[in-house]
């Protein structure tokens, strides 16, 4: 269940016929949200919609010595579009490609950076997560590879982070932090230390309904920790970049609390999982984009997590 940003594999399967569209040069823009910190904001479409390979926020950070890319998009095309978007801003080499977690919309563009010979960096749990996803990516996203889909185009990390790690880009540092199971079991956040930019990726969803693929309780705990960073700017995995960390975290925290509370009540009343997936979280429906693509799946996972409390 680790491979999706949004809820269910069924959407991924449906996407096959539609997935020929891609990020193109005309629509691919990057914005400098802090000095030398560039973000491309993904679009808010479902995984069965055209453009599904460009739904995540991805980007890069420029140091005096070299560049770190943070996530590469959901296709080799998107990865190339990001690579091409770096060139107008700097000629410095790409020394790191950081993946914030295993989901396809953040990692499938890695292959576009292979020739730059960067270090590929991820959580210590990411290599196995990638290995467990290769077949799924090949089978379900064949149109998002370079030519014929093949597992060897899916690049996992060669440099991993068990707790925290500092990367030096020359004149500025990135502090990487690996998280216990939260959004997924391979989450990694990036702090651009000098600019107080927290690249939270999918630990933070803004606008788009959060997609749970890890632990709801773990995710809430991570939100509490993220709040303590006091970052001035937060880059979510989906949704607009925010200059108000508390405001960016609040809706996601509320949503997860609604799910946990509703599921606990359903379990205590002896209600089966299908009752919970049909009813829990519905009060949040108007608050989120693409709510119906993920809520039932989220509730199912929360139910399975909480029924052994």
């Amino acid at each position: 269940m680790r491979q999706r940003v949004c809820a269910s594999r069924r959407h991924c399967a449906l996407a096959l016929a539609l997935c020929a569209t891609a990020a193109n040069a005309a629509s691919f823009d990057v914005r400098e949200v802090a000095p030398g910190v560039f973000v491309h904001e993904g679009t808010t479409v479902a995984l069965d919609a055209p453009g599904h390979d460009d739904i995540a926020n991805i980007g890069f950070v420029v140091g005096e010595r070299c560049v770190a890319v943070i996530d590469t998009g959901g296709s080799v095309r998107t990865g190339r579009a990001l690579r091409d978007a770096i060139a107008p801003h700097t000629k410095r080499p790409i020394c790191y490609v950081i993946n914030t977690h295993v989901h396809v919309d953040h990692v499938l563009g890695n292959a576009a950076f292979r020739n730059a010979k960067p270090k590929f960096v991820g959580s210590a749990t990411l290599p196995a997560a990638i290995d467990g996803s290769r077949r799924y990516f090949v089978e379900h996203y064949p149109g998002d590879f370079d030519g014929a889909a093949s597992a060897d185009q899916i690049i996992g990390p060669d440099t991993t982070v068990a707790t925290t790690r500092t990367l030096d880009l020359g004149g500025r540092t990135l502090t990487l932090r690996a998280w216990p199971k939260a959004h997924t079991d391979s989450d990694l956040s990036v702090m651009v230390d000098d600019a107080s930019v927290l690249w939270a990726s999918d630990l933070v969803f803004v606008g788009r309904v959060p997609a749970l693929d890890g632990s709801a309780k773990g995710w809430l705990a991570a939100i509490d920790e993220l709040a303590k960073t006091n970052a001035k700017i937060v880059v979510p995995g989906h949704g607009p970049v925010s200059h108000d960390l508390g405001a960016a975290l609040a809706p996601e925290r509320r949503y997860l609390e609604v799910l946990i509370d509703g599921v606990r009540k359903a379990i205590a009343a002896g209600k089966p999982i299908e009752d919970a997936t049909a009813n829990v979280g519905q009060s949040e429906k108007s608050q989120w984009q693409l709510f119906d693509t993920a809520n039932a799946h989220n509730v199912s996972l929360v139910y399975r997590e909480l029924e052994w409390e």
């Binding site: 269940m1 269910s8 594999r9 069924r10 799946h297």
Partner: peptide, 11 residues
């Protein structure tokens, strides 16, 4: 269309 293929409810 199951929301959770690993734990699909069947009654």
């Amino acid at each position: 269309s199951t929301p959770d293929p690993a734990a699909t409810p069947v009654a």
